[in-house]
Amino acid sequence: MVETIMSNQSIISIKNLKKYFKVYKKKPGLMGSIQSLWHREYEEVKAVDDISFDIFPGEIVGFIGQNGAGKTTTLKMLSGLLYPSSGKVQVLGFNPWDRKPEFQKQFALVMGQKNQLWWDLPAMESFLLNKAIYEVPDAQFKKTLDKLMDLLEVRDIVNIQVRKLSLGQRMKCELIAALLHNPKVLFLDEPTIGLDVVMQKVLRDFIKAYNKEFGATIILTSHYMGDVKELCKRAIIIDHGHKIFDGELQQIIDQYAVNKILSLTFEEEKSVIREQLEKFGEVKEFAFPKATILVKRTEAAKVAGKLLAELPVADVNIEEPSIEVIIRQVFESQHTK
């Protein structure tokens, strides 16, 4: 009997999840290798350390963290690939590592750096294999495949050997293979990694459309903040296995963005020098007639008013720093703690 830990209506629920790995530390060089034959030092790595959160149906949640933060390990536990060291997880009411077929038919895991398609055959063959594995009825298979091929514009490449496709085309086919059974929950682990900006945009649009069309719940990990910004209202930030933030993206900005950016354009016929700007804030860039100043968030409006009053400003913009910068600040603030 699975004990229910899911809070009201949540589709994914994690309580105090931990995953520790025992890692062998080898000393460098030949001597280190010889010594390791009879004496080995092991280190316990806390890949995921006491994480809890709930995810609700239809949400797209960005899972953000630096390399080795524990994002992929968490996704692997959610999909039943790894047993946790401790803690409880429920996805769609199932314990993932029981690996029940009824559960496995309702989710998909897509890893940007791994492929499930048969390399030497056209992607269509792998689609047919997944059709048999997931027992997708003929009519549903045809309908879903048609829809996905149209959304991703791959109709003319699904019959070409996978190894002859570009990375972007391959990723599109990987997504189709993963979605043919219409999963309710989708774990996307860096789906846009290595893709050019155009292809990143295509995949983002597709993920958004898929979420809208099928009401799927999606957890997305990505190093490209563009993915998170465009797709996710909510973000969970983890660092060294700990959850350090869980909330709306805007909240991260409110909570962690110390400064705002004032972008200024001066009247060209009048002269302004860098030193005149330094009393207003930290000058990040200056190339007359343009300048960028960092000012405290709370004083941004006041400083902008003063600048307008004292200097020949033709145009002023108050902007939030980029999400990348803010996230970097979040991690830096954690490490200083």
Partner: peptide
Amino acid sequence: NGDLDKVLTKPVNAQLL
């Protein structure tokens, strides 16, 4: 190489597959 990943998530007996 972690190739087992792509089989373990499927609704099928992983060892048979």
